[in-house]
Design a binder for these strands. Sequence first.
DNA 1: CGTGGCCCCTGATTGC
DNA 2: TGCAATCAGGGGCCAC
Length: 287
Amino acid sequence: MPELPEVEVVRRGLARWVSGRKVDEVTVLHQRSVRRHPAGAEDFAKRLQGAVLGQAHRRGKYLWLPLADDLSMVAHLGMSGQFLVRPAGEPAETHLRVRITFADALGTELRFVDQRTFGGLSLHEPVPGDPEGLPYPLAHIARDPIDPAFDDDAFHAALRRKRTTIKRALLDQSLISGVGNIYADEALWRTRLHYERPTAGMTRPRTAELLTHIREVMGDALAAGGTSFDSLYVNVNGESGYFDRSLDAYGREDRPCRRCGTPIRRRPWMNRSSYFCPRCQPVPRAS
DNA sequence: CGTGGCCCCTGATTGC
DNA sequence: TGCAATCAGGGGCCAC
């Protein structure tokens, strides 16, 4: 389940192994993987053929590589997406969705593999005047907390304005990007905040503490090469990253809280799960 | 318009 | 043993 640190690892892999190469052939093996390309799979392939893939950019969990002609190839890994750089001619992976070959002599091709097809590739024009050439579908995606331009004060003000709960806000990519279910639980545990705490009650020091912990969790994961729980996450060269043994809350139902020993609880939440320590992170009164 | 909830998908795991 | 239910979850989309 790639979160921001994993996606950043993929970005670096693309920058090293793919940027600057000229596309030869594009084969779309699953329509759903290009569903965000409005003009369809054939158009996607046609426009990409012959283009040189530019520098690899990231905003939150989105990746994009500008082409020479104003369009960018946008990628989202979703739940199970992987970019693999493989020797051309290697057998296709079971869930290979898009194959991109190159017009050079390096002998490798780029493969987008995605078991659950929540991810996908598409081509888009930039938001007019955006200095980074941010593609249109990403216009509403906020900066991530390890982006130097992330505005802590603006984030705090947005939390105060909202009438929602803290974990919902952390997963709202228009407020802060790159935080997924796992790292939200980890950061809330570190901050001793229950996931249903109203954002309107956040104080400035509390927000600052929360951001610090989010950055620590992400930084730790990035240093470890990304988090993984199974073989679904593989970086651009096919190597798994492992970080799960240092998780404090996520996936630890009934196991003792590393701070106080109280068994960690799991609660159904938004069709997924929230993990928390009932003692360190007490349920807010008004919920 | 802001907020909350549903749903897309596949495979591993669990339960009967 | 075999089949069905459950779970995993990013984020777009829609209803209220």
